[in-house]
Amino acid sequence: MSRPRCERCLRPLDHCLCALIPAIGSRTRVLLLQHPSEASHALNTARLAALGLINAQLHVGEVFDDLDRWLAMPGYRPVVLFPSEGAQALGPYTQTDDTPLLLVVPDGTWRKARKLMYLNPLLAALPKVTLGNVTPSRYRLRKAPEAGALSTIEAVVQALNVLEYPASFDAVLAPFEALIEGQIQAMGAGTYERNHHKDTGAP
């Protein structure tokens, strides 16, 4: 018999994260496009990001028939957060460039994110942006597949921190960090130290 789950954060009721999820406004609009394989992931950080940001929405799928309508939202300049050749590093908004971004974020493994780009030509045609200086991931449960790899929620928070500096969106990470800590505790300190701590190169 499955454990009762919170309908909002999708966590088991006895581990509900909703009390830690903020409701933070942003000038930037965030559109999260989640590959279906990520929707059932234990962390599902894209959902946590969408819940914590007032000006964000999350859609799950491979082909998004309404993408043209979402990208045409008036008052925003759409870009896709996707590190690739020619991607422009994000910088703070300026008075001469005051049109807020519609930041489209594919959510999935690199292979699945590339598949989303391939299956949605409108997405692939958007200007690409990337993070300039990447803060190391706080996802301590596994070794990053490559330097600079971040979970989706971390990438969104770092992007907003850059775009809307000096505003800080770190509070959006609170449920993510609690989830990581909870999994480490369930794993046991000894197991975590043996299997994860040394792999990250931590002292």
Rank of each mutant, 00 (worst) to 15 (best):
V156N: 00
R3A: 15
R69Q: 14
G91T: 11
V79R: 06
L126A: 10
D68N: 12
L122F: 08
E177L: 14
S26G: 07
P92A: 13
I54K: 12
L32A: 05
P12E: 08
F82G: 10
V162Y: 00
S2P: 06
E85I: 14
M117V: 07
D66R: 10
R194S: 11
L33I: 07
A89E: 15
L103P: 14
V134L: 00
Y76I: 07
D170S: 02
Q34G: 12
H59S: 13
H15F: 12
L51P: 08
N55S: 04
D68T: 15
V172A: 03
D97N: 15
L163A: 09
L126F: 08
H15Y: 10
A72N: 10
T135A: 14
I153G: 03
Q95Y: 09
R29S: 03
L32F: 02
T96I: 09
L173H: 01
E62Y: 06
C9S: 07
T94V: 11
M1L: 14
S26Q: 05
T96M: 11
D199K: 13
C16L: 10
L67C: 08
H15S: 15
L160F: 00
L131V: 02
G108W: 01
C6A: 04
M117N: 13
A19W: 12
L150Y: 01
D199S: 13
V156P: 11
A186F: 09
V105F: 00
L31W: 08
A144W: 04
V162C: 03
R69I: 15
L131C: 02
L102R: 09
G182A: 13
A87Y: 04
Q57F: 03
P145M: 05
T96Y: 13
H41C: 10
L48D: 12
T152Y: 00
S168H: 05
V134E: 01
V162R: 01
L102G: 13
V104L: 05
P136A: 04
A42I: 14
